[in-house]
Amino acid sequence: MLELRLPKKTPPGAEQADPPGTAAELDPSLAAPAEDAPPAREVVRAHGINFFYGQHQVLFNVEVTAYEREILALIGPSGCGKSTFLRTLNRMNDTIPGARLEGEVLITGQNIYAPGTDVIGLRRRVGMIFQRSNPFPFSIAENVAYGLKVNGLAKKKGEQADVVERCLRATGLWDEVKDRLNKPALALSGGQQQRLCIARALAIEPEILLMDEPASALDPIATGRIEELALELKEKYTIVIVTHNLQQAARISDRTSFFLMGRLVESGRTQAMFTNPQRKETEDYITGRFG
């Protein structure tokens, strides 16, 4: 089984009380937590995010919070900035020339945009699954072990094999591929490839998993597998998932944030938001009136 490697201490800046004008205001369910639910720890807190591709602003003052061991779904019409936002959480947008961000993103309390941040270390803690599965053109085993290799973890061959098996088991792929670990990963089916990518991300034991429409290129059965997997993984990880599929968001997410044209419109418990949206735009979107 995968070991849990969440940081033990609560870092500074992660106090539980919401500062006025942020998450609590946007998310009424947080201001009045259910009696039986202990206050959850904030793992991701994006605060006042403005994002620009060159001159073109695509995110406007976005506030999003994700709590420990939950699935947060990001929904909204195409082009509203969901992927862009997700990629600010592991600084993948750094690789895009001319991209610029204002605001701060706290991961377990530390601002990852503070000068001197170790971006490599950050990406190790915040894993990412892409919309199109993107295994390397290497063998199945090498794919899973790649993160260990570049991070200098598990130097010994035996250790590596253990991690590979553990991660493939965690994604339910082990029985399907255990006889061909040294065969090319690209020979797997689309759904298997996507689960391989999840296994690859798990190998370096991240704390947070970002998933950008991980099932959008898959058939319903493979999609179901990915959803089950996400539900299992949330026992240990905090998951932020972008999805176009509202049923999917309803099925798997604990909370949902709705984006519209670069702005966060509404955040809240998925159940509450889908049955009783606070904002007209949200209602229009989830009832399929546009988007």
């Binding site: 690789t95 990406r123 190790r124 990412m128 892409f130 199109r132 993107n134 570049v150 990518c197 690859r200």
Partner: peptide
Amino acid sequence: IPRSYREAALALGAT
């Protein structure tokens, strides 16, 4: 070489 390979590697903490 697809950009997706590079992104996958970067996202795993590769330099």
